[in-house]
Amino acid sequence: MELRQLEYFVQVARLQHVTKAAEELHVAQSAVSRQIHRLEEELGIRLFMQRGRNVQLTPVGQLFLKRAEAILGDLDRAVMEIHEFLDPEVGEIRLGFPHSLGINLVPQVVAAFRKLHPNVKFKFRQGMYPSLIRDVVDAEVDIAFISPFPDKNDQVIGEVVLTEELFAILPENHRLAHEESIKLGDLKDETFVLFSSGYSLRPIVWDACREAGFTPKIGFESEEAGTIRGLVAAGMGVSLLPEMAMYETSSMMPAVVKVSEPRINRTIGLIRRSGEKLPQVVHMFHTFLLDFFQNEYKPR
């Protein structure tokens, strides 16, 4: 079995098309077909089924794909570790983070790090709470920001780097819009605009409302903080958002009011795989982040 066969197999599996895989690999289609055929002969199984002009993995092909991707991933990491050992200043960091941190926090910390290490490269991967943990566990990313920080997970370790307060956002003409602070219970009869299921801020808001003695009435759901702000500003309801979600401004901005009771916070942490030593360049970035949040970070 040759490494080239695994590379061709993985590319065909991802694209479900031999011709497109050949184009991506910059080789002839016949070369890809030939290597896949030889791999199937050596394994004694069918890896693909024809589906019109596309191909589809067989059940055993799906099983083999996971192993092939793991082998190629380990090889890529081995090559990267060698390069980093020779010069960590030219390494690559694969960083995961939720969408809500992509507007300000991630660009801020990456820009600060690259001032010190300008040749380090980054690959970014955004995702929701469950997918970020999965990406870390599956070695799709080296390190990830996550919110809230997971209380118990044997597969990841990490630390809380930031605690952020959530504020009520209201239409400008709302009766409470110009109060210095409110109790969350004051909004019990309002329609709420919340993040869609799967986004970590949704259960934080939901639990806070339950603690305040009511279940929020959901009028609208969205996957973007900007959309939630706009809907609230347009009078479609109220919501709770962290301070970080207010940095981006537009012509449609709601009133922002402090919530005195209950106090609502979210934790932001860094996670990495348990039981594994970070690559040198990632360790350098991790150390930088811990110092940055302790001594230098200032909300914008």
Rank of each mutant, 00 (worst) to 15 (best):
I82K: 05
V60D: 03
E23F: 12
S30R: 15
H83K: 12
R53K: 14
I71T: 08
A68R: 03
I71S: 08
Q29V: 15
A70D: 15
D76T: 05
A28W: 07
L63V: 06
M80D: 13
L57Q: 01
Q62D: 07
D76C: 04
D74S: 11
E24P: 00
G61P: 00
Q50L: 09
F64P: 00
L75D: 09
R51D: 14
I45D: 09
P59E: 01
A68H: 02
D74I: 04
Q62S: 10
A28K: 15
A68M: 02
T58L: 01
H26E: 14
L65H: 00
L57E: 05
L39G: 03
F64Y: 02
R67A: 06
E24V: 14
Q56V: 11
L25D: 05
I82G: 00
F48C: 01
V60I: 02
I36Q: 06
H37Q: 14
L39Q: 05
H37Y: 13
S33I: 11
H83R: 14
L65K: 00
E23R: 14
R38F: 06
L65T: 00
H83Y: 10
E81W: 04
H26M: 13
S30L: 11
K66C: 03
Q50W: 07
A31I: 13
L47G: 01
L57P: 02
E24S: 12
R38H: 10
Q50E: 13
E41P: 02
A78D: 09
D76K: 13
R77G: 08
A31H: 13
I45S: 11
E41Y: 03
I45C: 08
N54Y: 08
E23Y: 11
Q35M: 11
E81P: 00
E81K: 04
F48D: 01
L43Y: 06
L57G: 06
R46M: 07
A31N: 14
I36G: 06
H26W: 09
S30W: 12
L65P: 00
E40D: 03
S33A: 15
Q29W: 09
K66H: 10
R38L: 12
I45Q: 11
H83M: 07
T58P: 05
L43M: 14
I36S: 06
Q50C: 05
V27L: 07
H37I: 08
M80Q: 10
E69C: 04
L43P: 02
A28N: 15
G73E: 12
A31G: 08
A31D: 09
T58W: 00
A28P: 07
E81L: 09
A78T: 10
T58Y: 03
D76L: 13
A70M: 12
Q29P: 14
Q29C: 11
T58S: 03
A70E: 13
Q56Y: 10
R38W: 03
G61N: 00
I82R: 06
V32T: 06
R34C: 08
V32Y: 08
L25Y: 09
V27S: 09
V32W: 04
I82A: 03
A68T: 05
I45A: 09
